[in-house]
Design a protein around this nucleic acid. Structure first.
Length: 217
DNA sequence: AATGTCATCAACCGCTATCTG
DNA sequence: GCAGATAGCGGTTGATGACAT
């Protein structure tokens, strides 16, 4: 028998969303709220499966989404949470208002992993990579010295401060940054970012096209 | 200018968890 | 308790743009 596919694949559109589709979906959700994703495409007049609609809304159309680069504090929080939670992206995302699990996953895989490796930290275990195996190419996590999770410290930029929303910060970490030669970290890289408070608004329909009306205050 | 390579990110796929009858 | 339906999650892929040669 086998389970039914999440949606009838025949005649359904795949691939990138058009502005028109975005408008239909956003308008529908804003008017009716989020419920019963399976029914959404039909009711909103979309040739997409409910799953695709949910993803599009969650990752792109939601008005409360932050856009732009991550702040240093957000990046540190992600690293900290990842050391505690592992690849539980949705759990991590729930601690970062305005960020999606997909976004965090992408940022982790493209930026943070590299940064940690560069720092000599294994991104999966959050443990220092053994000196001989740390040759900026291939890493063997089996050879790293054992270290308890509570001993891990996320090196931080001296000027960085935790926002009040960073409830689960690593403030109780005890290992000195210098012990792992991490003091020359690159956290100081200039990162421009927009804070949620920098925006006033969300989406609006302008001339039949869905437009973000985020205005820098 | 043309081509190749790499980085990024939106979107899809398949699996699991949860809900409902 | 069971089975089917649905939602949600995490891994992976593919399109695209930026950069290097």
């Amino acid at each position: 028998m086998g389970r039914q596919p999440c949606c009838d694949k025949v005649g359904l559109k795949k691939g990138p969303w058009t502005a028109e589709e975005d408008e239909k979906l956003a308008r529908f959700i804003l008017q009716n709220g989020q419920c019963c994703w399976r029914a959404v495409p039909k009711l909103a007049g979309l040739l997409r499966c409910g799953k695709s609609c949910r993803l599009r809304w969650t990752n792109y159309l939601r008005p409360d989404l932050k856009r732009g680069l991550l702040s240093e504090a957000e990046e540190k929080l992600i690293i900290d949470l990842h050391s505690q939670l592992g690849n539980r992206w949705s759990k991590i995302a729930s601690q970062l208002p305005g960020r999606t699990d997909n976004e965090i996953k992408n940022i982790w895989n493209t930026h943070i992993k590299k940064k940690l490796r560069k720092m000599g930290i294994d991104p999966q275990t959050h443990k220092p990579i053994a000196a001989d195996s740390f040759s900026d190419r291939e890493f063997c996590t089996d050879e790293v010295p054992m270290m308890e999770p509570h001993e891990i410290v996320i090196p931080c930029c001296p000027s960085a401060t935790w926002s009040s929303s960073s409830s689960s910060s690593s403030s109780d970490s005890t290992v000195k940054v210098e012990e792992f030669q991490l003091s020359s970290m690159e956290w100081g890289e200039q990162m421009l970012f927009w804070d949620a408070d920098d925006f006033g608004g969300g989406w609006e329909f302008d001339g039949g096209k869905l437009q973000p009306n985020f205005e820098l205050l």
